[in-house]
Design a protein around this nucleic acid. Structure first.
Length: 224
DNA sequence: GACCAGGCACATC
DNA sequence: GATGTGCATGGT
């Protein structure tokens, strides 16, 4: 079992610059308010963002992009509105559980939530049914501007193909890989994750398109 | 028509 | 503690 090579901060920043040059600044998250970002973070679980857009538009049109209104809404109605995002039975329950938590713990105030210590807040989020590590970290980074690096399936796939991580690497190890090498910077974390998602969507898929990949110049990507 | 998508909880061993 | 499985719509 050979040890994967350990890239330097400079190498990770080179990768970042290559992605940025290809995709341009993405300025995530695409949402009009922190509350909308939180809802989107749950709806996008294992789901294409294009489907989430439809669900959020439905919620918005129904006036449910609001904590109190969402909690008052009939469950069947909620399911119907978010149907395009898939897993709607589960996600309706998850949305309710999350918004109930948001209301109970912070009075539905983003400012009060953001005032809580980040590590403590992450633990609280993970205790909510339906909130796993990626969703928790997405909320912390993209809704609350906390310096938390978000990892997803694309991140693990791309960086294991680059030979930097074992193929079966778990969430926390992947996150540690980045935070131990990158400066703590909300803007960098924000943009880096977004860039990796674009890399994954456009090139580093299950069926990769390596020929046009912005990282092909590195000459180190190995599929499987 | 198969395959995939910005995961997660739960069952089973 | 690791591994497997159900959840569901919409685009390619």
């Amino acid at each position: 079992m050979e040890t994967p090579p350990s890239p330097s901060t400079a190498e990770l920043m080179r990768i970042y610059e290559l992605l940025l040059a290809r995709f341009g600044p993405l300025h995530w998250w695409p949402g009009e308010s922190p509350f909308e970002v939180m809802i989107g973070a749950i709806l996008t679980q294992n789901t294409a963002w294009s489907n989430v857009v439809k669900a959020i538009a439905n919620l918005k049109a129904a006036g449910l992009l609001d904590a109190e209104a969402l909690l008052r809404a009939d469950l069947r109605k909620l399911k119907r509105l978010i149907r395009p995002s898939g897993y709607f039975n589960q996600k309706a329950i998850k949305l309710r559980a999350y918004v109930r938590f948001f209301t109970r713990e912070f009075g539905g105030s983003v400012e009060r939530m953001a005032a809580v210590d980040t590590a403590e807040l992450r633990e609280k989020l993970l205790a909510v049914k339906g909130i796993g590590p990626e969703t928790a970290d997405s909320i912390l980074l993209y809704a609350l501007d906390k310096p938390v690096f978000v990892v997803d399936a694309y991140t693990r796939r791309a960086f294991s193909r680059l030979g930097f991580l074992p193929r079966d690497v778990d969430y926390d190890a992947t996150r540690e890989f980045f935070v131990s090498r990158l400066p703590v910077d909300v803007s960098l974390y924000n943009e880096y994750h977004a860039q990796i998602v674009y890399l994954g969507k456009d090139y580093c898929r299950t069926k990769p398109r390596c020929a046009e990949c912005p990282l092909s110049v590195l000459g180190r990507c190995k599929i499987d």
